[in-house]
Amino acid sequence: MSILDKVKHMLGGGAKTEQLAKQGIDKAEELARRKLGGKHARHIDTAAQKAREMADKINEPDATPPGTTPAPGRATPSGRDDTTPGPGQPGTTPPPYGPG
């Protein structure tokens, strides 16, 4: 499940989801500014802007943003189900060592 799907689920979906998400972003931005006392303001601005862009896409059907991993069970761009481990990933059997 993508983070966007998790937000939709937590906020109950519907028309108010985007609005509630943006309110949460505003509160998080305000808290970060207060806690950091003006330090890292540029990074806070960037993170808040990216989060708002994602909130704008909440009500779009199946809005998996570019560069993110699809939810488990969905096909990846290679066509492979992302729940299947690839070579060298945990859950795979290593090749035998030594002569056959």
Rank of each mutant, 00 (worst) to 15 (best):
Ile44Leu: 15
Ala21Trp: 00
Asn59Gln: 15
Gln23Phe: 06
Asp82Asn: 13
Gly79Gln: 14
Gly73Ala: 04
Arg34Gln: 15
Gly67Cys: 09
Ile58Thr: 03
Pro94Trp: 00
Pro72Asp: 03
Ile25Met: 02
Arg42Phe: 10
Met10Val: 09
Arg33Glu: 04
Ile3Leu: 09
Gln19Gly: 07
His40Ser: 13
Met1Tyr: 03
Pro87Lys: 14
Glu29Gly: 05
Gln23Tyr: 06
Leu4Trp: 00
Leu31Ile: 00
Lys35His: 13
Glu53Tyr: 02
Leu11Lys: 13
Pro85Phe: 12
Asp26His: 09
Arg80Phe: 02
Lys6Pro: 00
Asp45Lys: 06
Lys35Ile: 13
Ala41Ser: 15
Ala55Tyr: 02
Gly98Gln: 14
Thr46Lys: 09
Asp56Phe: 07
Val7Cys: 14
Gly24Ile: 04
Gln19Arg: 12
Gly14Leu: 07
Thr76Met: 11
Thr93Val: 08
Thr69Lys: 07
Lys8Pro: 02
Arg42Ala: 15
Ala47Tyr: 01
Gly98Val: 14
Asn59Thr: 13
Val7Glu: 04
Thr69Met: 09
Gly79Cys: 11
Asp26Asn: 11
Thr46Pro: 00
Lys22Gly: 10
Gly100Cys: 02
Pro90Gly: 11
His40Glu: 14
Thr83Cys: 08
Lys8Asn: 12
Lys57Val: 00
Ser2Lys: 00
Ala21Ile: 00
Glu18Cys: 01
Leu31His: 05
Ile3Ser: 05
His9Leu: 10
Thr46Met: 02
Leu36Cys: 12
Gly98Lys: 07
Ala51Pro: 08
Arg52Cys: 03
Pro96Gly: 08
Gly100Arg: 12
Ile25Arg: 01
His43Val: 10
Asp56Ser: 12
Ile25Pro: 01
Gly88Arg: 12
Thr64Trp: 02
Glu60Ser: 07
Pro94Ile: 00
Pro66Met: 13
Glu53Ala: 00
Val7Gln: 03
Pro96Gln: 13
Lys6Cys: 01
Thr84Met: 15
Ala63Glu: 03
Met54Leu: 15
Gln19Pro: 02
Ala48Leu: 10
Lys27His: 03
Met54Ile: 15
Lys27Asn: 04
Pro61Gly: 14
Met10Gly: 11
Asn59Gly: 15
Thr93Gly: 01
Pro66Trp: 09
Lys39His: 11
Asp5Phe: 04
Ala21Gln: 03
Pro96Trp: 07
Lys39Trp: 07
Pro72Met: 02
Pro95Phe: 11
Thr17Met: 10
Pro70Val: 00
Gly37Phe: 10
Thr83Phe: 06
Ala15Glu: 11
Gly24Gln: 08
Met1Trp: 03
Ala32Arg: 04
Gly12Pro: 08
Ala32Met: 12
Leu20Thr: 00
Pro61His: 12
Thr92Trp: 12
Lys50Pro: 01
Ala32Asn: 08
Ser78Lys: 09
Asp81Ile: 06
Lys50Leu: 13
Ala75Asp: 13
Lys22Leu: 08
His40Phe: 07
Pro65Glu: 14
Lys16Gln: 14
Thr17Phe: 01
Asp5Pro: 02
Thr92Phe: 15
Gly13Cys: 13
Pro96Asn: 09
Arg52Gln: 06
Pro61Val: 13
Ala21His: 03
Asp56Ala: 10
Gly13Glu: 09
Gly13Thr: 06
Pro99Ser: 10
Thr69Cys: 03
Gly73Val: 05
Gly67Pro: 12
Asp62Trp: 14
Ala55Trp: 06
Ala55Arg: 04
Ala48Gln: 09
Asp45Met: 05
Pro96Arg: 15
Ala48Tyr: 09
Asp5Gly: 13
Gly37Gln: 12
Lys57Ser: 08
